[in-house]
């Protein structure tokens, strides 16, 4: 599985999609952060200003608004479709899947590779944009990320988003006849909650759980638990089930 992941991570098509996601998300995060304007209080002692700024800054860590989610979903769908369907369309899969490993293992390694690339393509530009905008404020980033317990929740947030996008795309890819259908189906399914304004599905449910956890809870551990609790069914369980079904399907389906 390790070697298969290495193949996928070094594939030039995948890397081009990674670069697309990295740059586009970076630009969107950057413009989103600069749009936030100055944050300050009309009054209040310095201690409160620093503390509140740190907290507000933590909440303004780049997350997935409408624009960002569009690019994120597109990048995820492209990565998974290319990894899971393109080799089948070009018949390369016949040799890949003839290796002495189970089909689900190959698909799982592809899904994990897609997760790694999508996670890096979103988290790295998010941090870069954040540091570029707020890096000149002494102590504030440290306090926002570590003092307020944002880092753990923030990493989980992205992991959850990545898991959701990859699992939806993987299931669609396994059900699709070719790359084009896989791409179209994935984007449609990923974008549907946004168009239909469904607040019970990601990204809204994960966003709301994150915001609620970090505004209603005081202690970092409580925040993480509340966040996971609030987004469990559609942010964690549903993607795991979808990925599991995709893996089972990969065993049933022909390679070509």
């Amino acid at each position: 599985m390790k070697i298969q992941m290495k193949w996928e991570l070094e594939d030039p098509y995948n890397l081009i999609v990674f670069m697309f996601g990295f740059i586009m998300l970076g630009i969107t995060f950057f413009s989103g952060l600069t749009r936030n304007d100055v944050v300050f209080m009309v009054s209040g002692p310095d201690e409160i200003i620093v503390s509140e700024s740190a907290k507000t800054l933590g909440l303004t860590l780049p997350r997935l608004g409408t624009e960002e989610y569009t690019i994120f979903a597109l990048t995820g769908a492209l990565l998974v479709s290319l990894m899971m369907r393109y080799d089948r369309d070009t018949r390369v899969a016949k040799s890949v899947y003839s290796l002495p490993v189970r089909n689900y293992s190959v698909v799982l390694s592809k899904a994990l590779s897609a997760m790694v690339l999508l996670f890096l393509a979103s988290l790295l530009p998010a941090f870069l944009a954040f540091v570029y905008i707020h890096g000149d404020i002494p102590d504030l980033i440290g306090r926002a990320l570590f003092g307020e317990g944002f880092l753990a929740g923030y990493l989980i947030y992205w992991a959850m988003m990545v898991l959701y996008v990859v699992s939806v795309s993987a299931l669609v890819a396994m059900l699709s006849p070719n790359t084009f259908a896989s791409l179209l189906g994935s984007i449609t399914l990923l974008y549907a909650p946004l168009v239909l304004k469904l607040r019970s599905l990601p990204p809204a449910v994960i966003n709301e759980a994150f915001f609620k956890a970090y505004t209603t809870q005081f202690y970092p551990a409580d925040r993480v638990v509340t966040f996971l609790d609030g987004s469990f069914y559609t942010g964690l369980l549903l993607p795991v089930v979808m990925l599991g079904v995709a893996l089972i399907l990969s065993e049933w389906r022909d390679v070509s």
């Binding site: 749009r35 936030n36 304007d37 100055v38 944050v39 300050f40 009309v42 303004t60 997350r63 997935l64 608004g65 409408t66 989610y69 607040r199 990204p203 809204a204 966003n207 709301e208 915001f211």
Partner: peptide, 17 residues
Amino acid sequence: SANYSQEKLHPPFDPFA
């Protein structure tokens, strides 16, 4: 030298929900 307006963030959630 101050901008007292706080711009709306249009978060992907409803703060009043």
